[in-house]
Write a protein that binds this DNA or RNA. Structure first.
Lengths: 341, 341
DNA sequence: CGCAAGAGGTTAATCGCGTAACCTATCACA
DNA sequence: TGTGATAGGTTACGCGATTAACCTCTTGCG
């Protein structure tokens, strides 16, 4: 119905009076036992006929698929929009490039449960999986059920090295922010987070270390709807500080907008610093200074770790990705008040 | 190495002393010729052993793949970040949901050339393809080379109905913006666009129609680097208007930030209205009023049109998606100066 | 002269599933 | 008693590619 039929190895072989094995061997560079003339002839015919391998047949015939699955937790908090999240979409973008660069295909999927990942890996004979956004016990569960290696893209500190696992150095990120704020002359700094454990607390501790003085800590509500009122009630308290460090760009930008709406000039009256290095941070007014993660590096590392695990070259291990401060316009220089530009 | 081996139809059949054909028929609901006892037994065993079909084998055995490809033009202007673009990532998100809801798989790919799409469709036996971001002659080329139906996600007006093609009603979008501005008492309105043809011009014409008066038109440079200076030189001219309509949220937000940086209050001194309904618009300060596209509807329509084409139920045709004004805080009410909250 | 060792292939099984064609036993009915 | 329908399956091939095992013809060499 649409254009002519698909070209198969068999067609190529028949047209040249050869067997399919020979054509297949040429395709895979196993030309030791084939004369140069034949190789040339096959290559030319393949080119001429525009041969494209059938993946279904290829997958079925060999025992590795060269497909890597990327599975993202379709968490309710995203309300069905996971792939639009800036961290996730960056992950997808870079993972796509990186799998392709290594000669693999990527298959993308949202999942709510671990069993979906297992089924996904099984049905497509995935060589490995990158998982994003699940929690620790789910990963333990996954480890017991799945038959291929996987890497946790947004992992956590795990001294036992149970998983292929990527983390960032949260403490160092906080420290860099703290040190920068100190250099800019800030001493009264508030840390804003929605909990006081794990990575958020590491970031806070790093902040204090960098500042060389203890920062304030404010635990904000998880529910977006509650936060506006929460901030409203604490506006005066917040204005007591010269700078606010939020544990994510999301919170930083939200707070920045709240403050601006309430007539607080950023950074003149209050400095704000975020964490993530999102595009939103770079597009904000003023540009949000933030502890930036290198998403490209993270994806590269994830795929390389996964491939090594697939090839049995390495065991499950936690790899730490460095972070680096990105300077925008949201932090005021208290020490050095001459302006440039 | 990782957990036990995969369960095949053959295993199920052997354990029950049946043939694989019977198991396969149960799996596909072809149970007319199978006794209830056998059906129950098979179903139970499938459940018990956790059978998951092998897609490679399935694809190979039947002549449709139930895979839909989504191919996005990896255009240089995105600098390798296509999947992070807000329009694109929304498309991916909704298309993923919609393919799954219809029992299809989605395969995602960046491509630079039409031939990559053709090869992609061929190697995976795609049933159909959704393409995003290429231009008209490329689509014509694609039509001649590909063997399966495709739908253009971000299409254009095409009276000849040569393609499966989605457009929005650009004229009506402009009209809605114009009408709203008129209701808000604006008469001196400037339209900002980077060209004066096609959809941008339709939006401009719609704007004038809605306003019931001719709007100004300003063609801005394509190059991001040039625009700041361009605006700077025309700041006074721009401030002569009471409202600016930009043909995209991207331009609207960029202009809004520029104006704010230059001390112009939005919307008190100047109103701004955008086009697209992006997340950035909703998160801006002030929230950007914008002509919103319904991305969920677009994806749903794209998949339905594609499936109809796949099933031969419909020919290639252009489908128009309605747009609807989303009211933020970036347009001042000039007529009715009493404020509510 | 006879045998081994390449060179240059070919044959045929296999991957897991789908499906058209075929088989067999039972029962009804003229 | 023979015939045909029906229920309840089974057999066997094909999908397209990979690959181990197997040919056959030269040529070299003791």
């Amino acid at each position: 119905m649409w254009s002519e039929n698909k070209v198969r190895i068999k067609d190529i072989a028949e047209e040249l009076g050869l067997s399919t094995a020979t054509v297949s061997n040429v395709l895979h560079g196993k030309t030791q036992k084939i004369s140069d003339r034949t190789v040339k002839a096959v290559e030319q015919k393949l080119e001429e006929r525009g041969y494209i391998p059938d993946m279904a047949a290829t997958l079925l015939a060999r025992n590795n698929s060269r497909i890597i699955g990327v599975v993202v937790n379709d968490h309710p908090k995203y309300e069905g929009h996971v792939f639009e999240d800036s961290f996730i979409s960056a992950a997808i973008n870079y993972l796509s490039d990186e799998t392709e660069a290594n000669g693999y295909f990527m298959m993308l999927k949202k999942a709510k449960k671990i069993t979906e990942i297992v089924a996904f890996a099984s049905m497509w004979n995935l060589d490995g999986v990158v998982v994003i956004g699940f929690c620790e016990d789910e990963y333990q569960d996954l480890r017991d059920r799945i038959r291929v290696p996987f890497v946790i893209y947004d992992g956590f500190l795990d001294e036992q090295n149970r998983f292929g696992n990527l983390t960032i150095d949260d403490f160092d990120g906080g420290r860099q922010a703290g040190q920068y704020l100190k250099e800019m002359g800030h001493r009264r700094v508030l840390c804003v987070a929605d909990n006081e454990i794990c990575m958020d607390y590491l970031r806070y501790q790093g902040l204090c270390e960098g500042l060389e003085v203890k920062a304030g800590f404010m635990k904000i509500p998880m529910q977006a709807a509650e936060r506006e009122l929460f901030y409203q009630e604490r506006l005066a308290a917040i204005k007591n500080y010269t700078a606010v460090f939020a544990v994510s760009d999301y919170y930083a930008l939200e707070l920045m907008r709240f403050l601006q709406k309430n007539g607080v000039d950023i950074p003149d009256e209050l400095s704000v610093i975020g964490f993530d290095g999102s595009r939103e941070a770079r597009n904000a007014l003023p540009k949000l200074t933030t502890v930036a993660q290198d998403n490209a590096l993270r994806a590269k590392t994830a795929i390389h770790l996964l491939l090594e695990m697939i090839n049995g070259e390495t065991d499950a291990q936690t790899v730490c990705i460095p972070v680096k401060l990105w300077v925008g316009d949201s932090v005021k220089d208290l020490k050095n008040l001459k302006e440039d530009s």
